[in-house]
Amino acid sequence: MSQLSVPHLLGIKYLNKKDIQLIFETADHFKEVINRPIKKVPSLRDITIANIFFENSTRTKLSFELAEKRLSADVLNFSAAQSSVKKGETLIDTVNNILSMKVDMVVMRHPDPGAGVLLSKHIKASIINAGDGAHEHPTQALLDSYSIREKLGDVGGKKVVIVGDILHSRVALSNIYALKLQGAEVKVCGPKTLLPKYIESLGVGVETNLKKALEWCDVANMLRVQNERMDISYFPSTREYTQLYGLNKPLLDSLNKEIVIMHPGPINRGVEITSEVADSEQSIILNQVENGVAVRMAVIYLLASNIK
């Protein structure tokens, strides 16, 4: 019988290799479950989960909610406008109020990095970080790795390039941790202004030429430019960004091998990736979405088994 080494999922940084292995093996079973005619199991029928979103989300919120419902948990949804809640006591108070309604687990997205860690020190419930600012988005990284494992058999030894706005991306950071933990080689690629200064210290390579990066890799994870987190201009124009860092069919065809294309969504079609590529055979973007439900079911199931 295996268990996760952590009581919360605050970030990939806090997991070890065995945890990821356990999550993937459990997700395999849940993937089978969600492909049955009746896609629901009663495991968590006595658990209540609150989805607390202080930041907008479509995919992640739906995916978590579906995962929770597939496990028969009771679900509470709470959305706050970004401006209405400030970090600090207010956040803890808000969550404590929700928890006093006997909630066992909290799934939280928050614009401030470290919000989940702060919360975990003050409340008793199990916490899943569904994205905290530009810090981590652990379940996204898990489902990305899970999708690579499904497509290529293993993550270890694979070469993955993460392309785009690395500076503002929580997906990038969580992915780097997760991929490195599983023994993959990682490079980041994007305009220098969108690459964090000391990114090499995480053990990743840096490449500013997209074609070179694509020729090196087995998997390309294309990220969106996060305009909402930008207070200054990081590149001259979207058109120029697309010309230099957008993935299109001619570029993909010019490579001497077939690579796997991923995107965590939401896609800005025609900016970082063209429709032709996003909808091509090499793209596993929709598989990522399906796997997201299975992986989140696994995380919730494994964390829920620690609840007394």
Partner: peptide, 8 residues
Amino acid sequence: FRRDGKTL
């Protein structure tokens, strides 16, 4: 599930 503190 969750009766003896172990993950099934």
